[in-house]
Design a protein around this nucleic acid. Sequence first.
DNA 1: CGTTTGATTGACACGAGTCAACACCAGTGG
DNA 2: CCACTGGTGTTGACTCGTGTCAATCAAACG
Lengths: 244, 244
Amino acid sequence: MLIDGTKNPLIEKLLSGNTLLQDDRDGPQRLCSEVVVIDGRRDLIREGEEPEEVHLVLSGYACRYKMMDNGHRSIMALLIPGDFCDLNVAILGQMDHTIATLGSHTRIVRIPRDAIDELLTHHPRIARALWWATLVDEGTLREWLANMGRRPADQQMAHLFCEMFMRMKAVGQVNDGGFFFPLSQEDLADILGLSIVHVNRTLQKLRGKGFLTMAEKEVTIKDFAGLAEFATFDPNYLHLRVKV
Amino acid sequence: MLIDGTKNPLIEKLLSGNTLLQDDRDGPQRLCSEVVVIDGRRDLIREGEEPEEVHLVLSGYACRYKMMDNGHRSIMALLIPGDFCDLNVAILGQMDHTIATLGSHTRIVRIPRDAIDELLTHHPRIARALWWATLVDEGTLREWLANMGRRPADQQMAHLFCEMFMRMKAVGQVNDGGFFFPLSQEDLADILGLSIVHVNRTLQKLRGKGFLTMAEKEVTIKDFAGLAEFATFDPNYLHLRVKV
DNA sequence: CGTTTGATTGACACGAGTCAACACCAGTGG
DNA sequence: CCACTGGTGTTGACTCGTGTCAATCAAACG
């Protein structure tokens, strides 16, 4: 089954960091059977659960988060088209965080674990590529940690937009510098560890510098070079072969 | 070769979350050939490198860090006895961060990649246990991210000490509530994303509450229950079977 | 011994949180 | 058709946690 009649974001993603043959590409194409469309925030898997199916984002956004005892939601990862949500829960035994959708028009595929096992067994290059993907996730986590700990809010936010721009581009979701971004300022606050009010002001600052616009569920990067310099963004940690 | 003549921290660690047979335990025991002893801070592998050997911490501390453009050092993980430093660089191609020792009396083993491959091939339970260990690392990273983003400095620091206590306990490095902890307050600052001055004051606060002491390269947890409650510490993310 | 590294303290500045009010828009139901 | 609602974005005033700067002190060290 073809996604959107054109590109499969999972394939795009794996290609951006790995070498795959045509035969490898046919494997994942056949997986996408049970597609679910979700609007708004909905939990897909909760902390403590041990799901029987693996979730893959086809379009829109999902996230990993934890609810803190003080009532705050802490978002620890953004999942975009081509990202697996819970490839590894089989080994760890249970989820130590919750997966949820964000924004509108999210399409999720539920893939039976058997199908994944089959893929890993018969497509060693795919298996390695998926292993690569989880390691990139870990690198991204480290980058977020450094970004959050040691940078002021404006650079931190600029860094996030640089990352999302490159990640969306790597899966073919960027058109003319713009990409779908239906997250609210509250979502951004929970990602960056800031208050909503401060997110609002920081966004205005970035807009004022002419770096980007964010309106109608769409972000447009108007000056990537300037934004990247301001954020001191170094895309090494994404391990992409494709350069912008 | 036996470590310390008694326990091998790697075995201890893997046992704390997995089921291993005696046969599995003999494998890693034979790996520890080339042991290096290091005092103070020294880089083991730098960002951009692609090492031919895998590093394992036997005693003391190592860390993952990045130098930020603004001169700050951001520490993104603490590696304690039994932790691998760079098991995965073979897949990603190159390191996206630097590994360094911290404090004194650090003992590191360098293991040829071939030996690891052999272990992974002939000891499937070990392979799974190592895969488990990297997933736990990722969970820890998420917990640090949530911890840093959404908690005040005192709870954040309390949380760190709770984690280190449980991790050290899981590898048999805790005696009577105390464990070796040779990190300076500057190291702590770079872990928590705080200034040195504020680390100092926050430490005094925790001492003042009677939770712990930190002196002469040793941390002693005097009231773990109180500390854990104060930090709202939930050890789920460590995926340990052993309870305190 | 001087030198260096790490711990400690005080005074002050500033970034970011909190509280509160208001504007805007999309539903939605009477 | 319009009041009412809830979600989101925006703004101002004020507070407070943390950073910065600077000085001092203790211990380790060559």
